[in-house]
Design a protein around this nucleic acid. Structure first.
Length: 203
DNA sequence: AAGTCATACAACCGCCGGAAT
DNA sequence: TATTCCGGCGGTTGTATGACT
């Protein structure tokens, strides 16, 4: 930890749209090089961990948000039975899903059901999952053609972005318009109603 | 309409392993 | 070899929201 960082009061709690835009803009321009050092030049008073978590779990392109499909739930149940709470491994088998999201889903939907249902058979579950077609605007799954590519980078959070050859610790790309950045955000939320909810809350 | 409770999920914390020095 | 730093992981917490009374 750099001494200079210790003097800065790092912000905690929910991210606001401006912070998201800054992080997206910085990563779009410079890529991911060092989380702990990126925050400052990106204009964020956040810890590297916080930036990484926000990117990996929420802002990273290709992420699905919203309800799990029946197929995904069955995969989770199957892998959890085999692997236990190895969420990152399970997430690597579900493109577009993060370990955090799967963990949350398990804790809120599945573990409780398992406690109530003595027989953990998938067909015995009454889980709020969706089939191929969404039931409503808030239950939209990833549209065709927007499916993220499965790769190791999916879970690691690594992305194909321009690498910074020189010192990237400069200003963020101010040439990015709000619209461009918002479109990146929208892409992140493209699959579901969460972005609508997000906009409702923050914009 | 107001208060209370339950649910969902974003975010934080602590720990660990690997890489760099 | 020992130490430090960083990224990643899993557990847990805090809070917003919806359902219910």
């Amino acid at each position: 930890m750099a001494k200079s960082d210790e003097k800065i009061t790092l912000k905690k709690g929910p991210w606001n749209p401006e912070e998201d835009r800054k992080l997206i803009a910085y990563i779009t321009r410079y890529g991911i090089w060092n989380w702990s050092q990126m925050a400052k030049p990106a204009g964020l008073q956040r810890s590297g961990k916080s930036c990484r978590l926000r990117w990996v779990n929420y802002l990273r392109p290709g992420l699905k948000h919203g309800n799990f499909t029946r197929e995904e739930v069955e995969t989770i149940l199957d892998l959890h039975q085999k692997l236990g709470n190895r969420w990152s491994v399970i997430a690597s088998r579900l493109p577009g899903r993060t370990d955090n999201e799967i963990k949350n889903y398990w804790n809120t939907h599945l573990s409780r059901r398992l406690k109530h249902d003595l027989v953990p058979k998938t067909e015995s579950f009454q889980i709020p999952i969706i089939e191929t077609e969404p039931k409503s605007s808030s239950e939209i799954v990833l549209p065709p053609g927007n499916a993220p590519k499965a790769s190791n980078a999916e879970t690691s959070g690594a992305i194909q972005l321009p690498l910074c050859s020189s010192n990237p610790a400069g200003e963020i790309d101010k040439s990015k318009t709000f619209g461009e950045l918002q479109s990146i955000l929208e892409q992140s939320f493209s699959a579901q109603g969460s972005y609508k909810h997000y906009k409702k809350m923050h914009f």
